[in-house]
Computed example of a mutant assay.
Amino acid sequence: MKQRARTAAEARHRHQRRRQRHRPEPSDPHNYTHRREFLKRLDDHLATLVAELRDKGLGARAIRGKLRSELREVGRQVLGEHKTGQPGPNAALTK
């Protein structure tokens, strides 16, 4: 079966619908976590954590595991704060 050719207006409308579908919402955590302030605080926090773990004598694998755990915790914290609309009581990175 042969497809009919789209008019320019139909193609434009389809393109606009596709762009609207993929546009993140303003409350999307991605919009917050990809900002310089947040990333600077996160980098400082993780660098401090690494220094503390090295001082305790932990090796590279143990530090890597702790960093992963910490990043997961930060992700949970950010998602929770975006759900409630305000920082949690122990929020260090998102204030």
Score class of each variant (00 low, 15 high):
residue 9 A to L: 13
residue 50 V to P: 01
residue 91 A to G: 15
residue 76 R to P: 01
residue 32 Y to G: 06
residue 66 K to L: 00
residue 71 L to Y: 05
residue 61 R to L: 04
residue 34 H to F: 10
residue 83 K to C: 01
residue 18 R to Q: 13
residue 83 K to Q: 08
residue 80 G to C: 02
residue 30 H to Q: 14
residue 75 G to C: 10
residue 69 S to W: 02
residue 34 H to P: 02
residue 53 L to N: 01
residue 10 E to S: 11
residue 4 R to Y: 03
residue 35 R to G: 08
residue 20 Q to Y: 02
residue 59 G to H: 09
residue 17 R to Q: 15
residue 27 S to L: 07
residue 12 R to L: 11
residue 83 K to I: 05
residue 86 Q to Y: 09
residue 69 S to C: 05
residue 16 Q to E: 09
residue 50 V to I: 14
residue 88 G to Q: 12
residue 36 R to K: 10
residue 14 R to F: 01
residue 63 I to H: 00
residue 52 E to F: 00
residue 53 L to H: 01
residue 95 K to N: 07
residue 35 R to Y: 01
residue 48 T to S: 10
residue 30 H to A: 15
residue 78 V to Y: 02
residue 15 H to P: 00
residue 35 R to N: 07
residue 82 H to N: 12
residue 6 R to Y: 04
residue 23 R to S: 06
residue 38 F to I: 11
residue 25 E to F: 08
residue 87 P to H: 11
residue 40 K to E: 12
residue 31 N to T: 09
residue 95 K to D: 09
residue 77 Q to Y: 03
residue 49 L to H: 03
residue 65 G to L: 00
residue 42 L to A: 13
residue 46 L to T: 04
residue 37 E to M: 07
residue 89 P to A: 10
residue 56 K to C: 02
residue 85 G to R: 11
residue 25 E to S: 15
residue 30 H to I: 13
residue 17 R to T: 08
residue 92 A to Q: 14
residue 31 N to R: 14
residue 74 V to C: 05
residue 11 A to M: 10
residue 55 D to I: 02
residue 12 R to N: 06
residue 19 R to C: 06
residue 22 H to F: 05
residue 39 L to T: 13
residue 65 G to Q: 00
residue 40 K to Q: 11
residue 77 Q to P: 02
residue 74 V to G: 04
residue 71 L to Q: 12
residue 64 R to H: 00
residue 42 L to M: 12
residue 27 S to V: 05
residue 32 Y to N: 03
residue 80 G to A: 11
residue 17 R to F: 02
residue 50 V to Q: 03
